[in-house]
Simulated assay, not measured.
Amino acid sequence: MASTVAVYFVASPLQYLAARQIAQTHEAGARQLLVWYQPGVGPIVRPEHWDATAYMPWPRLSPLPGRFGRHRRLRENIRLVASLVGRCDTLHLHSAVFDTEAINYFLHALPRAAGAREMRARILPDGLISVRRYPLSPAKRALQRLRWLRRLAAPELKYTGFSGDRIGSDAAFCDRIYVLPGMPHEYPSAKVVTLQPLAQPSAAQPAEDAPRERRALVVGQPLVGAGLLDAQDLPAVSARLHGWLREQGIERIQYKGHPKDPNLELCAPGDEVLSLDEPLELWLARQRFDAIVGVRSTALLFARQLYGPSTEVMAFGWGQVRFKSAAERRDMERTFKSCGVVIDQ
């Protein structure tokens, strides 16, 4: 019988990397269980880093066949995770959000299945979702009451209602909210715990204060090929991007192409084209870069959340690149800036 079991429900590479750091530091000593509920996370999971792992299908998207398939999937998911947890004294449940039915029912069912005397819920960082609060609307509050009705058919499916922010940051069951360094947030300060940068360079790389070459990553994407940029504008954008890197004293430039960018549009002579045999997210988490640059790839947002302030993340060419509308440009610019990506027009 374990004293403390920490369970991590993750749905993205960012959440996975945050959960890994939390397991190694803030939850050290607990039994560590990873549950992912988006299939795309599976390729980055390293089972040897956890005491147990499992894929849990999302009930709404993957109901069981037949009548009441969603309801039966919820019950099967609870049995699955409870079998991994076993018996314990204390449960720490980690998730980026607690209002969704895929996660919420565990707040009531899992402590009872495990015989736990204490349960705490802790919120994982979720990138841009974590930048601001999302108050529960009257409709969402009404939906909580409807979900509570499942208890009439299955006592373990008791929905735990709460008010305030929809992720659960204001709820009494939540005692800790993990945030990324440098990322803005609107959470109550008494609950906030700031993580270290998620990128943890491997021991083979020089220490931060050791002499080393300055290194940058160019994030490629289809621009001309996708109709986002005129062909005559591409050389100027690439020249500005690479010129800025030279101004920063970058000695080594690596280029990560996009699967839909066979022409490596932003690649310049001397760039080292990468060919990775693992997901980009895991590879990035073990690297150290002085700068990561691109145009409008969402990989820049991921990089900004992964690295601390010592790594500059820049977006170039926004004066030439096309957007579907002025509203799309405003929304994307607000997103990039709120995440800390510097936009060079």
Rank of each mutant, 00 (worst) to 15 (best):
Ile123Trp: 07
Ser325Lys: 03
Arg286His: 13
Ile78Tyr: 01
Ser310Asp: 14
Leu128Val: 13
Asn104Ser: 11
Arg150Leu: 14
Pro309Thr: 15
Gly168Arg: 02
Ser3Arg: 10
Lys158Met: 10
Ala6Leu: 01
His94Asp: 09
Leu274Trp: 04
Val313Gln: 02
Val5Ile: 12
Asp209Ser: 13
Ala52Cys: 00
Arg141Thr: 08
Gly308Ile: 05
Ala153Met: 10
Gly164His: 06
Glu333Gly: 03
Val10Ile: 04
Gln200Ile: 09
Ser62Phe: 08
His108Lys: 04
Tyr178Ala: 00
Gln144Cys: 06
Gly168Asn: 04
Ile44Trp: 00
Tyr16Met: 01
Val219Tyr: 01
Trp244His: 15
Thr25Val: 12
Glu208Met: 06
Pro197His: 09
Leu180Arg: 01
Cys267Gly: 04
Ala154Cys: 08
Arg147His: 11
Cys174Leu: 11
Gly42Ile: 00
Leu300Asn: 02
Ser297Leu: 04
Glu213Asp: 11
Arg31Cys: 02
Tyr55Ile: 02
Glu333Phe: 05
Ala18His: 06
Lys256Met: 07
Cys339Asn: 14
Trp318Pro: 00
Pro181Gln: 14
Tyr105Glu: 08
Leu300Met: 07
Arg286Leu: 07
Arg252Glu: 11
Asp344Ser: 13
Gly225Asn: 06
Pro235Trp: 01
Pro197Lys: 10
Lys337Arg: 15
